[in-house]
Each structure stands twice: as C-alpha cells, then as structure tokens.
C-alpha cells in the first residue's frame, strides 16, 4: 500500500521529499490543488470514499497520516 501511495504522491508532486516531511500542509508543500488530485487518485486506487470532512491538515501532513486515513476508511 505504501508503495502505491508513494507512486501517486511523487507523480503528482515531483520534487517533494515525501519520505521525511511531516508538515506537508502546514508548510505549504502541498496545495489544495495537489490535495484534491491526490485524493481522487487515492479513492480510485484504494477504492475508499473520502469526504470533505476528511480534508484536514492532520490527515495529510505526512505519508503516515495519509496511510492511517486510508486504513480507517477501508474498514
């Protein structure tokens, strides 16, 4: 799952160090445009349904946060 996510992320935003960054939203490395693109791909790739309520900084600040979100929705 992690590889798939990393693939999506690096394709959408090349040049961002997703491995180490933990403040992707707060530091402005990911913008709203990037987020929705990533979200659409995530929904497609992992077959989960995201809602607008899920679009909060805490869920997208790091790769780990995103993985947690996906897992919680898969249940």
């Amino acid at each position: 799952m992690r590889e798939k996510l990393m693939e999506i992320l690096t394709e959408t935003c090349p040049g961002v160090d997703f491995e180490t960054e933990t403040a992707l939203i707060d530091d402005g490395l990911l913008e709203s445009l990037d987020i929705v693109t990533i979200v659409a791909e995530i929904m497609d790739a992992f077959e989960v349904e995201l809602n607008v309520e899920d679009l909060v900084p805490e869920n997208f600040n790091s790769v780990d946060a995103m993985l947690e979100l996906i897992q919680s929705l898969a249940e």
């Binding site: 709203s32 929705v36 979200v39 659409a40 995201l50 809602n51 607008v52 679009l55």
Partner: peptide, 11 residues
C-alpha cells in the same frame, strides 16, 4: 470558496 465550493465540487 476553497473549503466550501472547491473541495465539495472535487469530491
């Protein structure tokens, strides 16, 4: 607009 239109629309 971003929070109430854009995000709602894209999802």
């Amino acid at each position: 607009m971003r929070d109430y239109v854009f995000f709602s629309l894209t999802l």
